[in-house]
């Protein structure tokens, strides 16, 4: 039964995310209790490219930050895994198992290098820890990737597909705008935060934040066009960036429903195994299967009409229409 296999896959994936996080939290707590009396009041927490300390926190703040990071990371990845489907779940499981190994190793190391030092500016982070943490994380992630497996193939839900028959000589265009509330809100929040930064004289983060707000805001509304050249997704009035599927490479178009987090792991321009797409919200979407297999997905209302027109244009191009 596909559902049972799927439920088991989800449980296994969740265990692969939660257990390494619990282990990392446990080890970090044990180490912190063990060396608590040997840490200085102010500990080095940030290091430059050469491994010399250039950022400091109080001992308690470092512990709170380290535990908070692991707890938040574990919760976020756990939720993403629970909602993930098919290839997205596999990717999340690999990331969720490997990341706590990497962050846990770095956090424990940054505690250990502060043990028994009188002056935190003398602390040095041996740089070979970085590749060790990265390699360990990658190995565990790869293991999780193999353990979860690709899951049942049938999970790709079929969509609705029809063909709009076109008269000979007839020209047809379908065009629609689609906006993202999530991204507009994100842009607004970043904008407010960067204005606050500028107001208190923090120029660099303020200007960077402004730039990010403009970019996210601009990407929050796109136009989807289907015409004789194929499918185009762009950001009018800008000529670029622009994504397109030429009519010649359209195998089949259909209207589907997508879940932004479950199917693509978030919002925006998304790439995942087997598909890429512009996902600005959950719900109705146009999915185009290309010659060669990879799918392109764009979330947009009235996707049935867009799919039918694209199928009609492709059929006429192949000489089936009329």
């Amino acid at each position: 039964m596909a559902e049972t296999t799927d439920e088991r896959g989800r449980g296994r994936g969740l265990a692969l995310v939660v257990l390494p996080h619990l282990a990392a939290i446990g080890i970090l707590t044990a180490v912190a209790i063990g060396v608590r009396d040997r840490l200085p009041d102010r500990v080095a927490t940030h290091f430059d490219g050469g491994g010399t300390a250039d950022g400091f926190l109080s001992r308690e703040a470092l512990l709170a930050l380290a535990l908070g990071t692991l707890v938040f990371q574990g919760l976020a990845l756990g939720v993403a895994l629970w909602r993930g489907r098919g290839p997205m779940r596999r990717l999340t499981a690999a990331l969720g198992a490997g990341l706590p190994v990497f962050t846990g190793t770095l956090l424990v190391t940054s505690l250990l290098v502060n043990v028994d030092v009188a002056d935190p500016t003398d602390v040095r982070l041996p740089l070979w820890w970085l590749p060790v943490a990265l390699g360990g994380g990658a190995l565990v992630g790869l293991g999780a990737w193999r353990l979860v497996g690709s899951g049942p193939r049938t999970r790709e839900r079929p969509g609705r597909s029809s063909v709009l028959r076109l008269e000979p000589g007839e020209s047809a265009v379908w065009s629609r705008h689609v906006g993202s509330r999530v991204m507009r809100i994100a842009a607004l929040v970043v904008l407010l935060a960067s204005l606050v930064s500028l107001a208190v004289g923090e120029w660099a983060p303020g200007l960077l934040g402004l730039l990010a707000a403009v970019v996210v805001g601009a990407l929050a509304s796109v136009r989807v066009t289907v015409d004789g050249s194929g499918l185009v997704v762009d950001l009018p009035p800008l000529p670029r960036p622009r994504l397109s599927v030429p009519l010649a490479s359209v195998a089949e178009a259909e209207a589907v429903r997508v879940d932004a987090i479950g199917d693509f792991g978030g919002w925006g321009y998304r790439v995942r195994p087997g598909a890429s797409g512009v996902v600005l919200r959950s719900g109705e979407a146009l999915r185009v299967r290309r010659e060669g297999g990879r799918a392109f997905v764009v979330t947009v209302d009235d996707a049935d009409t867009a799919a039918a027109l694209l199928n009609g244009l492709a059929a006429r191009r192949r000489g089936e229409g009329g």
Partner: peptide, 8 residues
């Protein structure tokens, strides 16, 4: 919005 035109 769907546009369909026939020139002739």
């Amino acid at each position: 919005m769907l546009f369909r035109v026939t020139p002739d």
